[in-house]
Amino acid sequence: MAFDSSSTYVATEALKQAVNAAVTLQRPLLIKGEPGTGKTLLAEELAASLDTRLITWHIKSTTKAAQGLYEYDAVSRLRDSQLGIEGVENVANYLHPGKLWEAFTSDERVVLLIDEIDKADIEFPNDLLQELDRMEFHVYETGETIRARHRPVVVITSNNEKELPDAFLRRCFFHYIDFPDKQTMQDIVDVHFPEIAPRLVGQALEVFFELREAPGLKKKPSTSELVDWLKLLMADELAQEALYQRDPARALPPLAGALVKNEQDTQLLERLAFMMRRQRR
Rank of each mutant, 00 (worst) to 15 (best):
L95N: 08
L95T: 12
L95D: 11
H96S: 15
H96K: 15
H96L: 13
H96A: 12
P97S: 06
G98T: 08
G98W: 10
G98I: 11
G98V: 09
G98P: 09
L100T: 07
W101K: 08
W101F: 15
E102C: 04
A103V: 07
A103Y: 05
F104M: 10
T105H: 04
T105Q: 15
S106G: 09
S106M: 02
E108H: 14
E108Q: 14
R109Y: 10
V110N: 09
V111A: 12
V111C: 13
L112C: 06
L112S: 02
L113C: 03
L113Y: 06
I114W: 01
I114Q: 00
I114R: 03
D115Q: 04
D115T: 01
D115R: 02
D115W: 01
E116D: 13
E116Y: 00
E116T: 01
I117V: 13
I117P: 00
I117H: 00
D118P: 06
D118W: 03
A120L: 01
D121L: 01
I122S: 11
E123Q: 09
E123K: 07
E123V: 00
F124V: 06
F124G: 06
F124N: 00
F124H: 04
P125K: 01
P125Q: 01
P125Y: 06
N126Q: 10
N126Y: 05
N126K: 03
L128Q: 10
L128V: 05
L129F: 09
L129Q: 06
Q130F: 08
Q130C: 03
E131P: 05
L132C: 11
L132P: 07
D133P: 02
R134K: 15
M135T: 05
E136M: 12
F137M: 10
F137G: 01
F137H: 02
F137W: 05
H138D: 11
H138L: 14
Y140N: 11
E141G: 10
G143Q: 14
G143Y: 08
E144S: 11
E144H: 14
